[in-house]
Design a protein around this nucleic acid. Sequence first.
DNA 1: AATTATTTTGCAAGCGCTTTAACTAGTTCC
DNA 2: GGAACTAGTTAAAGCGCTTGCAAAATAATT
Lengths: 346, 346
Amino acid sequence: MTKTRTLSDLARHLGLSPATVSRALAQHEQIAVKTRARVAQAAKDLGYVPNRTAQALASGRTGFAGFLLPMRGRGLADPFLGEFVSALTEGFGAKGVELLLSAVPRDGSEDRHLESLITSGRVDGVVVSRIECNDTRIALLLSRGVPFVAHGRLAHDEEGYSWLDTDGEVAFAQAFDLLYQAGHRRFGLLSIDDPLTFREKREAGLRKAYDANGDPALTLRHVSCSRYDAQARAKAVAGILAGPDRPTAILAIADGLALELIAQAQSQGLSVPDDLSIIGFDNIPSAAHVTPGLTTFDACIADSATQLAEMLLARIKAPSSPHDQRLVRPQLVLRGTHGVAPQRAA
Amino acid sequence: MTKTRTLSDLARHLGLSPATVSRALAQHEQIAVKTRARVAQAAKDLGYVPNRTAQALASGRTGFAGFLLPMRGRGLADPFLGEFVSALTEGFGAKGVELLLSAVPRDGSEDRHLESLITSGRVDGVVVSRIECNDTRIALLLSRGVPFVAHGRLAHDEEGYSWLDTDGEVAFAQAFDLLYQAGHRRFGLLSIDDPLTFREKREAGLRKAYDANGDPALTLRHVSCSRYDAQARAKAVAGILAGPDRPTAILAIADGLALELIAQAQSQGLSVPDDLSIIGFDNIPSAAHVTPGLTTFDACIADSATQLAEMLLARIKAPSSPHDQRLVRPQLVLRGTHGVAPQRAA
DNA sequence: AATTATTTTGCAAGCGCTTTAACTAGTTCC
DNA sequence: GGAACTAGTTAAAGCGCTTGCAAAATAATT
């Protein structure tokens, strides 16, 4: 490692004190403009780059934002983790902040990990995602006074913290209406077990639209499964398709499930969308590549991440500013898995 | 932010000096085992967590590994960025190191960014990926003496640094042989323009197998395009499919192109694989979801990332240890886009 | 019991920067 | 001409930890 120059080296070289050089570099008003320019030039000439660790220790700000990555089954990485992380990184990068990714060990508690991340002073703030209905992380962060933003929200508390969520409630209601208009009466909901808020919201959206409709012919078959268990998923998919009175329209809580559903339906001779309409959620890349293309909602991941980065930066800068809550309207992407309800066989 | 305890607080509480406590926490041999236990217990009781910034400044090691994310066209994030980053994070996390993601601004130079990342002392080492034939980053890192590992390698220099690469050369030769055995004689290579080494290696693999074969009936149509320009890609795909003597077997340098090729071929009435065999590379998730499923090579991204993390940690620990060079054999995934050569129309 | 070896602990000097409070010049004002 | 300012600069005290070296305490040796 080649020896790097320190602030004192630069100060000595300039015949100034370290204090002045530090302030000059930071563009403090109180330093003469001429001096600032002289310092900047010398810094460039000497190739001086401030040591960020020392800056962090002295100033109390690290210039890092944290994000925890729970380690689940291998290869089961969130399909838009790349997009999300990439947009976050860019959003922070624009303001000179970098993203610190921290792995939560498989057997470890996410809360504990989060706590150590913040009390060890590695980050200026964090973004938490995959919020659960009664997520304890939010209370933890609040009690620690650490700037944070949530991607998603609590089920019954949307106050007192900053969050950004995609409006699954509206989306699923919209999906229901679309399919109802197309003549469907027998509905299915293919969901997951986890207590994630987004699941609850989406389900609620469907339920509300369903209840509000009031058509007595309406039926709803609700099947859910564990997300990380392939066998359970297959069983759930089979379950929702079973019997002569199976649904003609199914909403899947996420595209991954929708894809499995399509495959399974097709393999048992059903035509999508002639016999069965399917609408997913997320718009993962594969949704465009299956045949027929999956009709789904685009979750606008990159855009959400960009906004989250901006929101977190704002909180770090002004920790007591009013909280910011944003609901992103997901965009319906019409492809080929929805259609008019099949004629009832005689 | 609740006040956090410092090492001195803990030392005072224990009636020991900070030095002893520091060493005890670090499990130094010279501290009595009994004292170590006492300190550990007190630390737990008081909820003491060392400040990592201070540790970094004092010890010279940050506990961070860096990875640069060049910001290209929005949404064009590398399809396995998520998988890669996730596996890297886990690999580092196992040893208490975290991954720092730094965004290279769209208009900025990656070299300069990398240089500032390392001279500012934010990281103990870096992993660089998407190595180009004459990548300047490697020389830069070497000259700075920073521990690093490359995902990929230089075209003409595989010595003097640590790298891990997927063996695209062998893979493409294998793909050629497979298709030749199936009767194909008119080959196509759909590639990209960028001077990335992996492209060169894969192309070379095909060329070598092609030249070694020597069958005079063999033809090879080579078309390439810019990777980030959808129009150029479409044109390239059209080009490789044009004319009555179009190839019956095409190797695509990456799955993304293969997918576009399938779509285009099908839309002009060609049957895959009856009229046209296609083999890709990478095994992105969508490869399994298109119809027919794409025959391709699995690049083993997660496994590579895990190994890279391990390699970098080894270099950080022993910067002058011998370099480690690893070639990962990609696995051929046989799905539905390859088949026997079509009978020549009379 | 005196001496030497060994184990345990502490002093103090940083790591490279930020920041408070104070200090020095140069102006202005009455 | 000295008080009262203003602008520009600096001394010095950390930020919370690590670590080389030395001291103190304890154990082993003769």
